[in-house]
């Protein structure tokens, strides 16, 4: 995408969109990530300042939920990646007569983009 897109002129964007443009900046993304780390650290230490009423013993361990969430997420991702190697097929695997390879008919849509202005 070498040529500048019309939509990229900030004044063409809706107000809210304009206000959010900062997320495109990699430095800001990094900042968001750092904030996330800070929140996580805070949450981890909050375990020490209140008594958890868990139903199970293992719930009582410090950081149980955090560790569980982190590990669970990784299992999901790596599991899914492994699964993908087994079951990924081309989009036209079941073709013809599947929606995966079809364009959605325009008659049912109202496509409109800022380029049209």
């Amino acid at each position: 995408m070498s040529d500048k897109k019309i939509g990229d002129d900030a004044e063409n964007l809706p107000w809210l969109g304009r206000k959010l443009l900062w997320v495109d900046n990699p430095a800001n993304v990094k900042r968001v990530f750092q904030v996330l780390i800070l929140i996580c650290i805070g949450l981890f230490f909050s375990d020490f300042i209140y008594a958890r009423h868990g139903k199970f013993e293992f719930e009582q361990y410090w950081g149980f939920y955090g560790a569980f969430g982190f590990i669970a997420f990784c299992i999901v991702i790596f599991g899914a990646k492994a699964l993908r190697t087994l079951i990924k097929r081309d989009e036209d695997y079941y073709a013809p007569h599947v929606v995966d390879t079809e364009e959605y008919p325009d008659s049912g849509l109202d496509k409109a983009s800022y380029k049209d202005d």
Binding site: C40, L43, Y50, G66
Partner: peptide, 19 residues
């Protein structure tokens, strides 16, 4: 408090894993 914080821990650490 315990429910809210444990849920937040679960979700934010998962978010962290995503990051």
């Amino acid at each position: 408090a315990s429910h809210v914080i444990s849920q937040l821990q679960l979700l934010f650490f998962a978010l962290l894993a995503f990051g």
